[in-house]
Amino acid sequence: MPDTGLPPHIQAHERVVLFDGVCRLCNGWAKFLIRHDAERRFRLCSVQSQEGQAILAWFGLPTDSFETMAYIEGSQLFVRSDAVLRVLSQLSGGWRLLSGLRVLPRSLRDWCYDRIALNRYRLFGRYDSCLLPSADHQARFIDGESHS
């Protein structure tokens, strides 16, 4: 397979949100994106899936502990508060306004992000296994889907 400079399972035009599939908060974020991304800009992929693991490895991110959400645009990786704000900036309606939080120093934004991320299981709970997307949302997920 030729080196395209792109992570595995991701096409040049795609925007992919990697999320922890057993985290209740992270699953809520995925459901929020499905609900509010009317233009279907984003695809979703759980970090526990084979595809998610391959993408994490390609970027040199840990494949056994998931302490940040990752967002990928083509070959660009965004993590922590940058990832969240980059995604919000592309949603329609009032959600886009929240991306204005980028004016805050990244160190402050990431400190706040980390407080939630590192305590998310205790605060929000976790599932015993990854939730599977419903049939009507399957096309939004990379997991288990082949790209042509």
Rank of each mutant, 00 (worst) to 15 (best):
M1I: 11
M1A: 11
P2F: 11
D3T: 06
G5D: 02
G5P: 00
L6W: 13
L6V: 10
P7N: 08
P8W: 13
A12V: 09
R15M: 07
V16A: 02
V16D: 02
V16W: 04
V16N: 04
F19I: 03
F19T: 01
D20R: 03
V22W: 13
L25D: 03
L25R: 11
C26G: 07
C26P: 01
G28Q: 10
W29V: 10
A30L: 12
K31F: 06
L33I: 14
L33D: 01
I34N: 03
R35C: 13
D37H: 11
A38E: 10
R41K: 11
R41T: 03
R41G: 01
F42G: 00
L44M: 09
C45Q: 05
S46M: 15
V47T: 07
V47Q: 05
S49F: 06
E51C: 05
G52W: 06
A54H: 08
I55P: 02
L56Q: 12
L56C: 15
A57W: 09
A57P: 03
A57D: 14
W58C: 05
G60A: 05
L61N: 10
L61P: 00
E67C: 05
A70T: 09
G74E: 05
G74Y: 09
G74S: 05
Q76H: 14
L77W: 09
L77S: 00
F78V: 08
V79L: 13
R80V: 02
A83N: 01
L85C: 04
R86C: 06
V87M: 09
L88D: 07
S89E: 05
L91H: 07
L91Y: 10
S92D: 06
G94L: 12
W95S: 01
W95H: 04
R96A: 11
L97C: 01
L97I: 06
L98Q: 09
S99H: 12
G100D: 03
G100T: 05
R102Q: 14
L104M: 13
P105V: 05
P105C: 04
L108W: 15
W111L: 13
C112E: 03
Y113C: 00
D114C: 04
D114I: 04
I116D: 04
I116Y: 09
A117I: 03
A117P: 00
N119A: 12
N119Q: 13
N119R: 14
R120E: 00
R120V: 00
Y121D: 01
R122Q: 04
G125F: 11
R126I: 02
Y127P: 00
D128Q: 10
S129M: 10
C130K: 11
L131W: 03
L132V: 14
S134F: 06
A135Q: 12
D136V: 12
H137S: 08
F141H: 05
I142E: 02
D143G: 07
D143F: 14
G144A: 14
G144Y: 12
